[in-house]
Design a protein around this nucleic acid. Structure first.
Length: 429
RNA sequence: GGAGAGGUGGCUGAGUGGUCGAAAGCGGCGGUCUUGAAAACCGUUGAAGGGAAACCUUCCGGGGGUUCGAAUCCCUCCCUCUCCGCCA
């Protein structure tokens, strides 16, 4: 959510800066709502003031034993007018909030202008794309031949976009989770956190998934309705909701493993093969809560922490900065880390690291007390995958495949695999 | 699931219809004292919105109602705690 005072002051400038996202800000609609809000609010407040004055007078008159009938009549007529104005103001304010919370974040100056993902800009590469002395397979074939990856069983149990895994592959999947959490807690200074997998609507509003992306969420109707977390970002960031943190509580760097649940509405026919796009997947998430002056440094740091995972796993990757047209609703800037997938003969997103500046914090009223100004200010929030587990598993399978279809275990994972250095097919062992 | 008690400022906690945005304590900030710190003492200290400012308005879990006037009374929802039951 953008600052409403800023919108009032600089709406033309803001509208201009949003055009690079392909977002057209309806200036006239805002001016109309804002104009009405101002008049109604002023009227309401002056009527409230009069009412308070009358009430006080009545109280004092009664205390003296005087007759207050005249003032009471006056108060009644004020109240009639007040009721009408108040309800009109409430309507306008709801419309205004809805309008403002539907405006995406302003891209940072350093974000390249572009229309879609083809305009994203590669900023660095690590490693060379893996070479094979044989035609490499993709993870679906590899997993099936190992007898450890079963999409048909998942369809029977649940439907499309789920997976069933068996044996050493599950262990590898679990090893990835432990390896990543250990790396971030032991070497990158993160605190591990465990959170609910079902969250309320306020939490989803806070991080920006609601109201605009309601169709992407799995919801349990009820009072109140609960939503399956689409990412740990939601519960972890909302820890700061409605709080005023002190300077010594910042920065907070948290790492959290959760399953993630996404409807993937609107992605029919996209990535239907394999584990790339699932309704349920695991992710190790990194979240930073920082004072505003630190957030741009924090974005570089956080991205580096996600990259470190791939470096330790010796998986080739590149980092791209998302262009203005491809950046998410709430983000001011996003780096995508894309891992090399031989099965797709290309790079594929495995982490998305973003600085939201105060956009989420304003939605969730997450503040800190700035010792310099002694005022409360919104803090800045960031997050990034560190990393998506399912896609990392895919990357290990495809990059570490051997000619006979077995999978070598990256050195960094062997201690998490009981010393095993190879996954061989169930049929062969 | 049954019974009961509660939800008040950064925290603890008083406050059952009229200067209550709210006592007190803790914490924070400023000061006195001190070589420095601690202790003690004095002062100060909620958030949000509007306004150039004076100042005004709103907020005591959420929503609704009663009243000239609600933290306080009524309705409803949510949440927390205690006991019992059930249970991974």
């Amino acid at each position: 959510m953008l600052d409403s005072q800023w919108l009032r002051a600089d709406i033309d400038d803001i509208a201009q800066r949003l055009t690079v996202r392909g977002f057209e800000l309806d200036i006239a609609a805002f001016r109309d709502l804002e104009g009405r809000r101002k008049v109604l609010q002023t009227d309401t407040e002056s009527l409230q003031s009069e009412r308070n004055r009358c009430a006080k007078e009545i109280g004092q008159a009664k205390a003296r034993g005087d007759d207050a009938a005249e003032v009471m009549a006056q108060a009644a007529s004020i109240n009639d007018r007040l009721k009408a104005v108040e309800s009109e103001l409430a309507t306008v304010q709801i419309a205004l909030t809805e309008f403002i919370s539907g405006i995406p974040n302003i891209p940072h100056h350093s974000v390249p202008t572009g229309r879609n993902e083809t305009d994203n800009v590669e900023i660095r590469r690590w490693g060379e794309s893996t070479e094979f002395a044989f035609p490499p397979k993709d993870h679906v074939d590899l997993g099936a031949e190992l007898g450890m990856l079963d999409f048909e069983m998942a369809v029977k149990l649940s439907g499309s976009r789920f997976v069933v895994m068996y044996g050493d592959l599950v262990r590898l999947h679990r090893a990835l989770i432990h390896f990543m959490i250990d790396l971030h807690t032991r070497e990158h200074g993160y605190r591990e956190i465990y959170v609910p997998y079902l969250v309320n609507a306020d939490s989803l509003f806070g991080t920006g998934q609601l109201p605009k992306f309601a169709d992407d969420q799995f919801v349990f109707p009820g009072e109140p309705p609960l939503y399956l977390v689409p990412t740990a970002e939601v519960p972890v960031t909302n820890i700061a909701r409605d709080r005023i943190l002190t300077a010594d509580e910042l920065p907070q760097k948290m790492v959290c493993h959760t399953p993630c649940f996404r409807r993937e509405a609107g992605s029919y026919g996209k990535d239907t093969r394999g584990m790339i796009r699932q309704h349920q997947f695991e992710k190790v998430e990194l979240v930073h809560l920082v004072e505003p002056a630190q957030s741009w440094n924090a974005l570089e740091e956080l991205t580096g922490h996600a990259e470190a995972v791939l470096q330790r796993l010796e998986l080739p990757y590149r980092v791209v900065v998302l262009c203005s047209g491809d950046i998410g609703f709430s983000a001011a800037k996003t780096y995508d880390i894309e891992v090399w997938l031989p099965g797709q003969d290309g790079y594929r997103e495995i982490s998305s690291c973003s600085n939201f500046e105060a956009f989420q914090a304003r939605r969730m009223r997450a503040r800190w007390r700035n010792p310099a100004s002694r005022k409360t200010e919104f803090l800045h929030t960031l997050n990034g995958s560190g990393l998506a587990i399912g896609r990392t598993l895919v990357a290990v399978l495809e990059n570490y495949q051997q000619a006979d279809g077995s999978i070598a275990i990256p050195a960094a994972l062997r201690s998490y695999m009981g010393g095993t250095d190879m996954i061989v097919g169930a049929n062969r062992s």
